[in-house]
Amino acid sequence: MIHAGIVGATGYAGSELVRLLLSHPEAEVTAISSVSFEGKAISEVYPAYFNLCDMVCETAGQVVDKCDVVFAALPHGLSQELAKACDEKGKAFIDLGADFRLDSEEEYQKWYGGTYQDKELHEKAVYGLPELFRKDILGKRVIANPGCYTTGAPLALAPAVANGLIELTGIIIDSKSGVTGAGRGLSQGTHYPDLNEGLHAYKVASHRHTPEIEQTLSRLSGQKVHVTFVPHLLPVNRGILSTCYGRLKPDVTKAQVRKAYEDFYQDEYFVRLLPDGMNADIHNIKYSNFCDISLHIDTRCGNLIAISAIDNMVKGAAGQAIQNMNLIFGLEEASGLALVPPAF
């Protein structure tokens, strides 16, 4: 049995890790920590866990000492020292924050305002999007778990970019996210009267997930890719719908696009390529680790429209982190994650 620890267990992503790991057949939650709720049981913070997990929040150091793998569900800037402590003690470390996601320290400074404290440790870290970079993850111990937008949008575009089906300029990503993506902390933008019955864009063409999306697409294409990325906030708890637009190269047919996606994802359990005529919908992936993708061709304008739907708390955070843990420890990749989405 793998002993798993969660630092930042009382945030939304941390709580979701607890929920999923409680049902994992080969891992158990051994220790949790929370700065805000140290000394309190997680079931006091989330009564849904009453009598299922009444574990008391300890310190981050205690979590590291007790566990084989440590999940860090922390804001950016807080994971590097923790990762180093895990690395020195031979513990696996999976970061749900942004500290290890970007290859370039210059980009990290630009978008997050921080620096790399241990460059050798950053060189050990790998980007943990299994469907695209599985071979890199196997056998590694420091994993940068992608964010929610940076999972859904690249999965929608990856086959088209990797197979040279679309132009690499002019790619547009329009994403709409449930409010849990903003975290558990309160803000005016997530205040119920402001959010309910509304829909608005935010951080237009300036969201810090932009360079991460570009990094993934550039790696797949072998060329530098720039995208226009506009996120929106939906008045729902969960889910991200990403509608991605790319101009098809001359003479690329709908059949070619379809085959490229089928071949690319044929062995991927968690990617469900929907048949023609169906649309990806966040309703159909709720609470699950699936990414649904629907393909649409605008023949009049010559554009590919690839739409993906994920649960931002599962495939976009905790579920993908557990998927990475399974890979690290040589477990069945879907272990603990074969969750059926509710039909209504």
Rank of each mutant, 00 (worst) to 15 (best):
I166A: 07
G319Y: 00
S43C: 14
T59F: 01
R258V: 12
G246F: 02
Q320I: 07
V18I: 15
M1H: 01
Y116T: 08
P25N: 11
T169R: 08
L78E: 10
P211G: 13
A205E: 10
I94F: 02
A205W: 02
I6K: 03
S175I: 15
P47G: 05
L217K: 08
G183K: 13
D251C: 07
P146T: 02
Y49K: 06
V69N: 04
L129F: 00
N163L: 14
L304S: 05
D103P: 05
F270K: 10
S43D: 11
T216V: 15
V7H: 13
A182P: 07
N289Y: 06
L168V: 07
G222F: 10
G139D: 00
D194Q: 13
A343P: 12
Y192N: 09
Q117Y: 09
S15Y: 06
A156N: 04
H283C: 01
D263S: 11
A343C: 12
A85W: 06
V179G: 03
S242C: 14
L195D: 05
A27G: 11
R219D: 08
P47R: 04
T30N: 02
M55S: 02
M1V: 02
L155R: 11
V69S: 03
N303P: 07
V179M: 05
I6N: 05
R134T: 02
S175V: 15
S36C: 03
V63H: 09
L102V: 05
F229W: 10
L327A: 02
L195K: 08
P75T: 06
G90S: 05
F329I: 02
G183S: 10
I285Q: 06
P342L: 03
G181I: 06
V252L: 08
H3V: 01
A41Y: 00
A60N: 14
E197M: 11
V179P: 01
M1I: 01
G316R: 04
A343K: 15
A72K: 03
K110E: 11
N312G: 14
W111F: 10
A321V: 00
D99A: 04
I282Y: 05
Q320M: 13
A309N: 14
S175M: 15
T115R: 15
Y116F: 13
K84G: 02
H232T: 12
N326Q: 04
A158R: 08
R101I: 05
L155D: 09
Y245I: 15
D174F: 01
M55I: 02
S218P: 13
W111S: 11
A334H: 10
Q117G: 06
N51M: 07
P154S: 09
H226A: 09
H122Y: 10
G97K: 12
Q223P: 07
E81N: 15
I213C: 12
E16K: 11
G152I: 14
G178H: 04
I282E: 03
S242D: 13
G14F: 07
L248D: 02
P75I: 00
G113V: 01
A182E: 14
S288W: 05
E131A: 03
L74Y: 04
T299Q: 14
F93W: 03
W111G: 11
Q256F: 07
K110Q: 13
D263R: 06
N303T: 12
E44D: 14
P75A: 04
L168F: 03
V35Y: 07
N324V: 05
A27R: 06
